[in-house]
Nucleic acid binder design. Sequence first.
DNA 1: AAATCTTTGTTAAAAATTTAACAACCATTA
DNA 2: TAATGGTTGTTAAATTTTTAACAAAGATTT
Lengths: 210, 210
Amino acid sequence: MFKKFKIPDATIGRLSMYSRYLSEADEKGITTVSSQDIAQATGVTPAQVRKDLAYFGEFGTRGVGYNSRELYTYIMKILGLDKRWSIAIVGAGNLGRALSKYKGFQQRGFDIVCIFDNDPKKIGKKLANINIYPLDQLEEKVKELKIDLGIIAVPASAAQEVADMLVGAGIRGIINFAPINVTVKENIILRRVDLAAQLEYLTYYLEETR
Amino acid sequence: MFKKFKIPDATIGRLSMYSRYLSEADEKGITTVSSQDIAQATGVTPAQVRKDLAYFGEFGTRGVGYNSRELYTYIMKILGLDKRWSIAIVGAGNLGRALSKYKGFQQRGFDIVCIFDNDPKKIGKKLANINIYPLDQLEEKVKELKIDLGIIAVPASAAQEVADMLVGAGIRGIINFAPINVTVKENIILRRVDLAAQLEYLTYYLEETR
DNA sequence: AAATCTTTGTTAAAAATTTAACAACCATTA
DNA sequence: TAATGGTTGTTAAATTTTTAACAAAGATTT
Ligand SMILES: NC(=O)c1ccc[n+]([C@@H]2O[C@H](COP(=O)([O-])OP(=O)(O)OC[C@H]3O[C@@H](n4cnc5c(N)ncnc54)[C@H](O)[C@@H]3O)[C@@H](O)[C@H]2O)c1
Ligand SMILES: NC(=O)c1ccc[n+]([C@@H]2O[C@H](COP(=O)([O-])OP(=O)(O)OC[C@H]3O[C@@H](n4cnc5c(N)ncnc54)[C@H](O)[C@@H]3O)[C@@H](O)[C@H]2O)c1
């Protein structure tokens, strides 16, 4: 579909930001935006914006700028957000609960369709009206509900095991919130989100001036 | 203290990972580890490990490797985790609740000491035994409790306002979970954590094979 | 219709980061 | 004490990413 030679990871993250700004702009009735506008709103440079977009095609008009709605639609398509995606969360704890109650994912095309846990007290209950199942129903549900994405929200000690099960069940992309390195086979897309590490980034910079 | 010319951001994140592995290794009684071992455990290359460490000094012994506990201590010091840090969370919603109940932060030296919200129904209550205060007590509490770090867990529409208040109150580092670009003055360390963007990274790569 | 003003897309340059290679060094063994 | 094996720290090379510059192109003005 699009030329997908090697695009910087950071570009993908920025496209998400751009798309949010564009949808806002469009809602406000701003039909045309410049790379300058996008840059200002998202905290990058105009050159960066143009470069990021140039990987995927020509979306603007010289001397004018970009049509907000049009560019928004293009970016959403690039990100695969012209379709909806089903997600399974594993781990109905603090984090699993927060994620499953979050309305923002739906708005971006994500449906959390089921939750898994190994705690008998939680199985059979619901979170945000989403059923909690035992892990042995993982494969069945992934197939039945055509689930592509998995979120690991279990303790680090169980994360690799859960990752293996998700992959075994046919899931193709995983977000891992457990603070441990998890490995998956080649063709699975894995993303680690380490919240403590984010805090530690702050303390690294503040440490010397304390 | 340490030579802090420009260190890649990614290096800081990897140091967090290394430190986790090292503490595990130490607990298991593994006194010596090689860059190879660290690399394998954290999913990077041995050269990368050595390069990352070389920014800060010489911690190993050629022909031998690194002393686990010693290197752990060094890295924790580099990250500023030889001291404890106090955190204020703003937003006692889904995410704020999950973060405040999370035990893992304490273990890394972080104490969530108070929570702020503007909802009268939540003010005066507690989350994980931490008091929820109204926003107009922010400055007072930041000073009283010597709070350095703030976490923004409010809706995007309130994020900039909250960031300004945090900075005004004297906070020096901020994690922003709201999906919007927030700006702060030069000397404040700001980190954005965009969870939806993480999912969108997955869909970007899966999009074409769906 | 020519001149001017804007803003994109692209190319080149610069900067940053990662990877690779290897000399230096330590420990162990012969 | 010399030789061997193993691992670091460092330097150089390769790669990736960002920044800058500007020609190309559309809109507006004279
Ligand atoms: N809560 C946070 O704010 C936060 C912050 C940073 C990182 N994390 C990480 O996210 C993960 C989840 O954190 P949490 O606070 O929600 O933990 P939690 O203890 O509240 O919840 C973990 C859940 O996983 C379930 N579980 C345990 N083993 C399982 C298994 N093998 N299969 C299925 N379910 C299993 C438990 O029953 C529990 O419901 C942890 O790895 C944690 O380190 C959480
Ligand atoms: N929950 C998630 O899993 C999740 C995932 C991704 C991003 N986020 C982002 O994190 C932020 C918080 O998400 P959430 O799900 O916890 O939202 P939430 O609506 O559950 O909670 C928001 C809280 O902020 C409080 N609040 C609102 N305006 C405020 C203000 N001006 N000052 C102080 N408090 C105020 C509300 O009273 C509420 O308690 C949002 O920006 C959201 O987009 C959340």
